[in-house]
């Protein structure tokens, strides 16, 4: 028995969400009186993996074979299933990311396991029940779900769990597998990166604009504040629909769901669909000239004022803070 966690890396470095996954896995292992091990796949630097001991991981299996340099769900599932087999894992922890959910679905079939995604709690384990809380109805509610199969697969919501810091170094062991043509079907031929920006789904601070920004020409006000705070930028659905901003920046019920420590909404009225995508942010700031904007009811801090006037003042104050 063991708990296995998937470590996602970006450009050789362990992602912050992967540290959350490792820490969560270590806590589950403790509850089950077993050990936590990890598997890292892809464009990784094996030397960077030993420090996962600080998150309570005892051993890290890794594959940086050229076939899995980019994410291919079937090949990744094969490597993870192999690591689960070798370590005797009965619980697998993933990030609730495009990668985590895509392999989670395949592993649920391959390993005959129960899968819960978008999980926001540690499991409650008693007798034959293994229950986790997960976000449903696009952030409007939670469900308590019992995972009934012997193997449990859990994808945890990002920026929801603390990263453990303790003493320790993890042991490292390579996994080498042969991949068939079918394992590698769907591998990308080309990757196009938008460089130099903070990733929206990993960001601790997000600055977001709505129709109240009045036009794409005013977006520098959002970007300047985001730069001063080291934040990612986002937008509301109407803004993406009219083409002021690209669709991948749209947060809300039919866009990206985020849970940063701080969400600053400028000129967004707060339609229920938008709130659904951001309401698990720890602190919400709303800037709107309309005091009746529904978003103020969901906010921790508010400024009733014009974005063109307020945002530069905030940028200036944030810059002063950094000096």
């Amino acid at each position: 028995m063991a708990v296995l966690v998937l470590i996602e890396c970006a450009e050789g470095q362990v992602k912050k969400s992967a540290l959350e996954v490792a820490s969560y896995g270590a806590q589950v292992a403790q509850a089950l009186s077993t050990i936590a091990v990890a598997v890292a796949i892809g464009d990784i630097n094996p030397d960077a993996l030993g420090t996962l001991g600080q998150q309570g991981i005892q051993k890290v299996y890794y594959s940086n074979q050229p076939e899995v340099k980019n994410f291919v769900p079937t090949a990744y599932a094969k490597v993870i299933a192999q690591a689960a087999e070798t370590s005797g894992a009965t619980v697998i922890i993933l990030a609730n990311s495009n990668i985590g959910t895509a392999v989670g679905a395949r592993l649920a079939i391959r390993l005959n396991g129960s899968l819960a995604t978008n999980v926001v709690s540690l499991p409650e384990i008693s007798g034959n029940t293994f229950t986790v809380r997960r976000g449903v109805f696009s952030g409007k509610a939670f469900a308590d779900v019992n995972l009934t199969a012997e193997r449990k697969i859990i994808a945890i919501k990002k920026n929801t769990f603390e990263v453990l810091e303790q003493e320790g170094t993890a042991e490292i062991e390579p996994i080498s597998l042969a991949f068939s043509e079918a394992d590698l079907a769907g591998a990308p031929q080309e990757t196009i990166r938008t460089t130099g920006k903070v990733l929206l789904t990993e960001a601790e601070v997000v600055v977001s604009g709505g129709r109240g920004m009045r036009g794409p020409e005013n977006w520098h006000l959002i970007e300047n504040l985001a730069d001063a705070l080291g934040a990612a930028t986002a937008c509301s659905k109407p803004v993406a629909d009219v083409g002021w901003r690209p669709h991948h920046e749209h947060v809300g019920q039919t866009g990206t769901t985020i849970s940063p420590n701080l969400y600053i909404a400028a000129g967004i009225s707060g339609a229920i669909q938008h709130l659904a995508g951001v309401n698990s942010s720890k602190v919400i700031v709303v800037i709107n000239k309309d005091p009746e904007a529904p978003f103020f009811k969901a906010a921790d801090y508010g400024i009733i004022g014009d974005v063109a006037d307020v945002l530069p003042k905030l940028t200036e104050a944030a810059k002063a803070l950094n000096q």
């Binding site: 819960a116 229950t131 952030g139 509610a141 939670f142 469900a143 308590d144 779900v145 019992n146 009934t148």
Partner: peptide
Amino acid sequence: SGTVYESYSLP
């Protein structure tokens, strides 16, 4: 099915 929905709650 692999999961049983026991109960729901609101934030």
